[in-house]
Write a protein that binds this DNA or RNA. Structure first.
Lengths: 137, 137
DNA sequence: GAGAATGTAACCCATACTGTTATGATTTTT
DNA sequence: AAAAATCATAACAGTATGGGTTACATTCTC
């Protein structure tokens, strides 16, 4: 599949909203990302539901950060996107009773679980404020 | 997309060939995996080109291991499959000159690279002999 | 030469992110 | 009250990739 770039884009977006006085419309953000406002709204839906941002309708509306960037971690954003799978690779489950398949999958599964744990653990230790480029800080 | 299960399936396959006196036809292997012989041949092509297995055509032909399982690592198989990307997630490159995008991607990229290095490093330390279930060893 | 096997191309299918259009709902402004 | 701005959401097409299937060519043994 095409790789899922939502996390990268969402972080990019949220920091731009912050640098943009904490408010921006889907249209404005879409131009910053080179995409369509509907794509922005679709990605933002989860963050709105989790209370990280607020949507204001009508003229002079748009998106507003509901928390300081220092209080949102990369993991929060990952989870708000629905905790999508990190991996393009997975385990075959053709014959769950086959001892060979079980042995292979136990070993690979442990490697994948370890990598996933490590990545999400690092996500949890990085706030969005950490990602603001030094130039603008 | 559906996750790529070729690595898991290939390891499963190769061990079965070994346990099957070191030889098996695509048809036999396909039945073990619950798939089609063409899928088996397609996955095996890379391993054949790299010299890990040999294909024997004609009656009483099939696939033959060209090395001992102890001399093939999981990394070898991964590479023979074309070193497919481990990750379903990637970095957005909408505006390569945007400092925010660059900062976000530098941080995420480092996390992904670290995870990838760790996974492939573990792949390199596991031979296919290590994956044979104890029962049949 | 018959038959068994691999080699490979060509297609279709399923999935998931992405992009776009269309329509509706809500809110501010006048 | 009407108009305009903005979000909400459904619906659909595009794209890419792994997987499954069919078809046909090739090679090898008997």
């Amino acid at each position: 599949m095409t790789q899922d770039s939502r996390l990268s884009r969402m972080l990019h977006m949220l920091i731009h909203i912050d640098l943009h006085d904490g408010r921006a419309t889907s249209e404005t953000i879409a131009q910053m990302l080179g995409t369509n406002p509907v794509v922005v709204r679709r990605m933002m839906a989860g963050l709105r539901e989790q209370g990280y941002v607020e949507a204001v309708r009508g003229p002079h509306g748009g998106w507003k950060l509901a928390r300081d960037l220092a209080d949102i971690t990369v993991l929060d954003v990952h989870n708000a996107l629905g905790s999508p799978s990190l991996f393009a690779v997975g385990l075959a489950v053709d014959h769950p009773d086959c001892p060979v398949e079980r042995s292979v999958n136990a070993t690979l599964g442990e490697i994948f679980d370890d990598a996933e744990t490590r990545v999400t653990s690092r996500y949890g230790n990085i706030t969005l404020a950490d990602l603001i480029p030094d130039i603008k800080r």
